[in-house]
Nucleic acid binder design. Structure first.
Length: 414
RNA sequence: GUGGCCGUAGCUCAGCUGGUGGUAGCCCCUGGUUGUGGUCCAGGAGGUCGUGGGUUCGAGUCCCACCGGUCACCCCA
């Protein structure tokens, strides 16, 4: 095994059924978002390191210890994207802002973070994500959440749960944080070391502490939702009205916060049975554009981990159906038959050849395993008469078809 | 990054207190006469027991380190 290569720690290969199911959940997401006006966006695999440093915040875990940062041959500092929201906003500022507003996009990209590898925590992971840039409308927040809800329902996610909160904005959050810090300092002797550490880096995270004795103390702490400014409170109320109207259930969680600095107002997370972590996180980020040198620009979106989703549900793609397998026994018939196979493909028929064997028994066996509907058999007998035997794999019925008619027969057969 | 558990074929796993690696199941390939599948039968391929050291007459089994996985913490999708 030492002579062989393994995928690098925290990465994996996708093939066979895994790849098919993965493809299927992406197709389901597209089937939900594309009719709603979301177009695909693709951003570079790496960006200027500063883009992530400035947007996520130098002290964030992502920036301080999880980024894959390297220098290229010209000495530029580049970083493999650890998330896609900042890159999408960068792309928005680099041209997308000229499109009709707001700009609605989806992406399915890999992300790289040097973190502890565990179930649902890889070093390269895929996210299907959505961003709506250019509108502060609460109806947009609700649309994104509602569509995501439909996607997860289509996937059949068990015990789907939505946690919702508003974390305010630059007007009200600083005052709330000051209030919270005051509370924490007043109860400092009743909180553990971890809380003290968080108090220094991100006071909001203190509320997350899982220590029961800390929780008992923190239950009396001021809540962000009680201290929103009028605009934020009105915005949050409207998001909830829209969600109620769309029939999306949610749970208000005042302690739900975000690890990245650019989030404002609406914040949400989805979770499901069978996985301790959330399967998706989203929020509004009205402060992001300015942090990376653009004009004030509102935005809202989510990133949904594909691997995490596939940990809790594996929706089966619909069986292809109607596929045809070419079983060409006669050596001299192969060139023409495979050419006809291509013609059938061009005519819309799903077709493949049994390349692995020249024995009919094995070819039919293969057709059974693959689930092909029909098999085109051409041996010496058929070849002599310019014919093919078409076998229906369900009924076992066989009929002769002239080679000149074969493509038409296959294409019209279903 | 810290701590616990784990690592036998592509996959799921046997392997007792150290004494020669399993006819195991699934998957893959071949054959069961010359052209008929979903079954059955027979055969085969595939492992330096994660890697490297150490203890021992002898290590899949015990010890150490590394690699990989997993659980908790941190954080997050």
């Amino acid at each position: 095994m030492s002579e062989r290569f393994q995928p690098p720690r925290g990465t994996r290969d996708w093939f066979g059924e895994d790849a098919a199911v993965r493809r299927h959940v992406i197709d389901l997401a597209r089937s939900v978002f594309e009719p709603a006006g979301y177009g695909e966006v693709v951003t570079p695999g790496f960006e200027d390191t500063e883009l992530f440093a400035r947007s996520s915040g130098e002290t964030s875990d992502v920036v301080s210890k999880e980024m894959y940062t390297f220098e290229d041959r010209s000495g530029r500092s580049l970083t493999l994207r650890p998330e896609s929201t900042a890159p999408v906003m960068r792309a928005y500022l680099n041209g997308m802002s000229r499109l009709p507003q707001p700009v609605k996009v989806w992406y399915c990209q890999s992300h790289f973070r040097y973190n502890a590898v565990q179930r649902g925590r890889a070093r390269e992971h895929y996210q299907f994500g959505v961003e709506v840039v250019g509108s502060p409308d609460a109806a947009v927040d609700a649309e994104v959440i509602a569509l995501q809800h439909r996607w997860y329902r289509l996937c059949g996610v068990p015990e789907l749960r939505l946690e919702l909160n508003s974390i305010g904005d630059a007007t009200c959050r600083p005052a709330y944080v000051a209030l919270l810090e005051e509370f924490i300092d007043a109860h400092i002797d009743q909180l553990d070391d971890e809380c003290l550490e968080r108090r220094k880096t991100n006071p909001l995270r203190v509320l997350d502490c899982k220590n029961p004795s800390c929780q008992a103390v923190l239950a009396a702490a001021p809540r962000i939702t009680d201290h929103l400014c009028d605009d934020c409170a009105a915005h949050f109320a409207e998001v909830r009205r829209h969600l109620d109207a769309r029939g999306v259930d949610y749970e208000l969680v005042p302690t739900l916060v975000r690890g990245l600095d650019y989030y404002t107002r609406t914040a949400w997370e989805w979770s499901a049975a069978g996985l301790a972590t959330s399967i998706s996180g989203g929020g509004r980020y009205d402060g992001l554009a300015e942090q990376i040198g653009g004009p004030p620009t509102p935005g809202v979106g989510f990133g949904a981990g594909l691997e995490r989703l596939l940990e809790v549900v594996r929706p089966q793609p619909p069986a292809p159906g109607g596929s045809v397998l070419f079983a060409v026994i006669a050596e001299q018939a192969r060139p023409r038959m495979f050419a006809l196979m291509d013609e059938a493909r061009a005519a819309g028929v799903t077709a493949d050849a049994a390349y692995g064997s020249r024995r009919l028994k094995r070819m039919l066996e293969l057709a059974s395993k693959r689930g092909d509907a029909r098999v085109v058999i051409v041996g010496d007998d058929e070849w002599e008469h310019e014919q093919a035997t078409v076998r229906d794999m369900t009924s076992g019925e066989q009929r002769s078809v002239a080679l000149d008619e074969l493509v038409k027969e296959l294409a019209g057969g279903f």
